[in-house]
Design a protein around this nucleic acid. Structure first.
Lengths: 340, 340
DNA sequence: CCATATTTGACTACCGTATGTCAAAACAAC
DNA sequence: GTTGTTTTGACATACGGTAGTCAAATATGG
């Protein structure tokens, strides 16, 4: 049997097309008994609105906005590129995405960008959260106007957004510890952490998770205080170099931020390499994995996050339920043999 | 500017709607110069056909068939369930999926199932490949009738199908070795492999990859000949128990098939646990990861494969290009801290 | 230049839904 | 029962295409 249409519903309920439409789209008042008949018919026939036809008729478009940190951050650039290339083929279906980049880590810039959006000609918004009172306030304003909102990579309180797409960095840190701990073997030793900065929430969280697992499950290992390299390769190289001179027997290294080139440079001057786990899969980290410089890479897939954000916003705009699992992004582990 | 429609193309080319339609759908003959004008107009306007409108008008439906091995195999059951639940909400868009289950590992049954399909009322086919002459022949026949064909989990020669969705089991085995090798530490030792059967291609491939990496990158480790437990828990328990009695110092265990319950049972009687890597994430293996019985799980995500198969078939049916990355399934590694 | 075959245009109906107009019908209040 | 107000139905138009008919325009061959 073909899918029932509003015609079938009208016939079944013994009313006119107009009335079905009035019930379906909540237009002028329909008397309760009539409405009940129509809704009963829809239920008994299993009617579901044909979104394609509805959108065609309405000339509906989906206008989405992305607000992303700019700069050289390769993770963000990959994400941005995927937003474009995933939404592009959706253009004939009326999906238009506008991307705005703002200075990274700049909450005032984020607030201004959000305040600059007009919720009335927008159907969805995705942005990388920075949790501050001003940002919260701007988000609340947009939400009140009915805008669908998802946070990307870095979350805000759940009541401010419809959905969060990203990973839990505590668990990413735990995952790194689980691997590095096993890689280090049973002998006592000390581990170095190279971070960007402990004031950035995701870095702080990764460290937290990392130290928790080392503390409970690998008690023979201890962790040096994190080196804060500000995501800068030279700084990372210098700080890690200093530490390696002070403590030549380092048993393992966890690099949880950017500036990985510096980490590898500092190691290259030594003849025996301790196990190394780092974040983000780039051309470089790929290469280091393959040549044995590092042992594992943890990542959150930026492309998947981009797609998930778009799909989720579209589903929210349609009031449809979305595929929870499909829009999950996991904490991925890469070794040389399972590289994509 | 709104998307151009066939009306715009007609105006731009100075021809009628009918002629645009003739060019677009290759109906009756159109003279070359006219066709060129129309195609030029489409290109210069950047016309793309509105698939939703076209499908609405055509009453187009997508009829997909899945042929899957039946039985208790939890991987296949998950995959099957996801085929249903992913295609279900697509029903209003005209997607109808029919699933046929056949006895596992039975090439005659597969061939018969394929021969039983009528390519004329089908738009796409996905099945778990068994490579045999009879199967190849049946597939070739379907392909000749223009059916879009995707192999799932287990591949056939590339020229017989449009796309393969699954993982490379050699690399899955390599990945397992990379992890287990690291987990075992630097001391010499012997590793046990518990497999289903070496006549099944994916198991043989996993073993191959595993032994390759152990041989080159962990030369201090040796690998016992694989125990063929026929994916049966009792057999696995017995065989592994025997081996553990004969060689109590086993340094690590790789279980590459089913019957994992038996592997764990055999281990439970010992007080010190060697590192264990196994395949497939189930409620059980999850639990074993969390309680420390096993150390890592390798999986190919059955749900993702189901979705990728459907999306790929739909894209092929539309003659659209499909998102390569999105339809890739990777070799995933799970430790207790990155479980979904 | 005529007869014929091919190519093109004009028009219609349709897919499932949205939206608007207008009149008819049903109801409520007096 | 008459009025006034809701509620309902009939119909038209549109969205961007598909698919068909029929006649007019154009090309081709002799």
């Amino acid at each position: 049997m073909a899918r029932p249409t509003i015609h079938d519903v009208a016939r079944e309920a013994g009313v006119s097309l107009s009335t079905v439409d009035r019930v379906l789209n909540g237009r002028t008042s329909v008397r309760a008994p009539t409405r009940d008949r129509v809704e009963g018919a829809m239920r008994s026939l299993g009617y579901v609105r044909n979104t394609a036809a509805a959108n065609l008729s309405r000339g509906r478009t989906y206008r989405l906005a992305f607000v992303l940190p700019g700069g050289a951050n390769s993770f963000m650039r990959l994400l941005e590129r995927e937003v474009v290339s995933y939404s592009d083929p959706l253009a004939p279906d009326g999906v238009a995405v506008e991307i705005r980049t703002i200075p990274p880590f700049d909450e005032a810039a984020l607030r201004d960008a959000l305040l600059g959006l007009d919720a009335r000609n927008l159907d969805g918004l995705a942005f990388v959260g920075i949790d501050s009172p001003a940002v919260r306030d701007a988000v609340r304003g947009l939400r009140r106007e009915g805008l669908a909102i998802v946070t990307l990579v870095s979350d805000l309180p759940a009541e401010l957004r419809d959905h969060f797409i990203g990973i839990d960095n505590i668990w990413a840190g735990r995952t790194a510890a689980r691997l590095l701990g096993r890689f280090c073997g049973p002998a006592p030793g000390r581990i170095a952490i190279v971070a960007g900065s402990m004031v950035v929430r995701d870095h702080a969280e990764r460290r937290l998770g990392f130290e928790a697992v080392i503390g409970t499950d690998f008690p023979h290992l201890t962790v040096h205080p994190p080196l804060e390299a500000l995501d800068d390769a030279e700084t990372a190289e210098r700080l890690l170099g200093d530490l390696l001179r002070a403590d030549p027997d380092i048993a393992g290294i966890y690099s949880l931020g950017a500036g990985n080139r510096g980490v590898v440079a500092a190691l290259s001057r030594r003849d025996t390499l301790p196990p190394v786990v780092m974040h983000e899969l780039t051309d470089q980290s790929r290469q280091w994995l393959l040549d044995g410089t590092i042992d594992a890479v943890i990542r959150q897939d930026p492309e998947r996050e981009a797609r998930a954000a778009i799909r989720t916003l579209l589903a929210l705009a349609d009031g449809k339920s979305f595929h929870r699992e499909e829009n999950r992004v996991g904490i991925e582990i890469f070794v040389p043999d399972n590289l994509p």
